[in-house]
Nucleic acid binder design. Structure first.
Lengths: 220, 220
DNA sequence: ATTACTAGTAAGCGAGTAT
DNA sequence: TATACTCGCTTACTAGTAA
């Protein structure tokens, strides 16, 4: 979504086009966003094409209303500004259950990890992680979480292999306690790994594609 | 301010650059906003030039922090989204006292207006209006206010002249009660007219250029 | 590794204007 | 009145690469 289209959509929303149809001409909109009538017209066409607004062209002006898709787009923007200015000590993320590549199980079976989890998180993790695919927009939240003081699980060597350190945060998934695990050395991924004392797929009757809600607790 | 620069600034803020300096490379930022390294670099140069961010270029990556100006810019965006999704029954506007062209006094001395003000607003306005110049960004709020059910003051004729109808909203200026007056037939102006039972310039010791805070009360 | 310049290409803009 | 097309001009983009 181009930045100028979001700006235009926001202007239309400020005029009240989320609740009602608003009557406005392209020239009025062009004055509002300080551009030409032609550009305002083009923006409206683009927003219409993307399904962000509906239009009823009359002989004079046009009736414009923002669609659910358009509203969702603006809400995602709003969420980002809330994160910037209104952040509290909890972060809410929703995502979709997906199958991992089996690495999670391997990791959570390492005795050195298990010891640290028990000591620092106060629970013994069930072998394996539950992988949650989060929306692109929500990746911002993960980046932000990473800035906070995490519970650190140190790296260690086992025979010839090095197991990297991870950052953990206490979290809940559908109200079941556990933690999220973020590898220290990794790019921002859209997969969140959740560990818990329970076999979550069974306890929560989860299958791939199910949507779940996660709350991450930040320490400070 | 170009839309893409605000978007970039928001992304940097999401990484925590309002509180602290963050260490990030142009290529990491380019991945985040889905563009090339060169474009991300150019955006940073533009933001720096506008005084929105400060940068410390090292041999590797760069330390970026958002300036007060940058923060203010983002807060204005945030305010707009709050207006869209969190609107309550009060609207807060700040502005600067300016001198009008003397028309306000003429209007508020018309007996027909005075009668209506007394009946509908429950106070007798002091002759003249206090003119408040609002920032461009705040004009959105006025547009929104206009969508609400106002207290209507009807138009009337006096000899050969027609006095147009106005919309009023109960309001407070620096905690002194009164009302704002919006001409029904007018384009969106950046001047807000405030009426009150008192001579506000004296009561509040106001002179041109002073900043004041206004609260507008919406009926529903 | 980085940042950011150059230059060629693509996208966006708005005056004029058809509808 | 409107909206929105064409087209010449400007701005923005990125591959290549210097520093």
């Amino acid at each position: 979504m181009k930045a100028y289209l979001i700006q235009m959509l926001k202007e239309i929303a400020l005029l009240g086009a989320i609740r009602d149809k608003i009557e406005i001409s392209s020239i009025e909109l062009s004055n509002q966003i300080d551009t030409s009538q032609q550009t305002a017209s083009r923006y409206l066409l683009e927003l219409d094409k993307k399904g962000m607004i509906t239009r009823e062209l009359g002989i004079k002006k046009q009736l414009i209303q923002i669609t659910d898709l358009g509203k969702t787009t603006l809400q995602e923007e709003h969420l980002q500004y809330q994160q910037i200015f209104e952040l509290t000590n909890r972060i809410y993320i929703s995502g979709k259950v997906v199958s991992g590549i089996g690495e999670g199980s391997y990791y959570t079976e390492q005795i050195n990890y298990i010891k640290q989890f028990q000591e620092k998180l106060k629970f013994k993790p069930f072998p394996g992680t539950l992988n949650i695919e989060i929306k692109h927009i929500e990746k911002n939240k993960i980046r932000l979480v990473k800035k906070y003081n995490a519970i650190l699980i140190n790296e260690f060597k086992n025979n010839n292999r090095t197991f990297g350190g991870v950052k953990c945060f206490h979290a809940k998934i559908e109200n079941i306690k556990g933690a999220i695990v973020l590898p220290i050395r990794s790019h921002y991924s859209n997969i969140l790994e959740f560990i818990s004392p329970y076999f979550l797929r069974k306890k929560l009757k989860l299958k791939d594609g199910d949507f779940v809600k996660i709350i991450i607790f930040l320490k400070n």
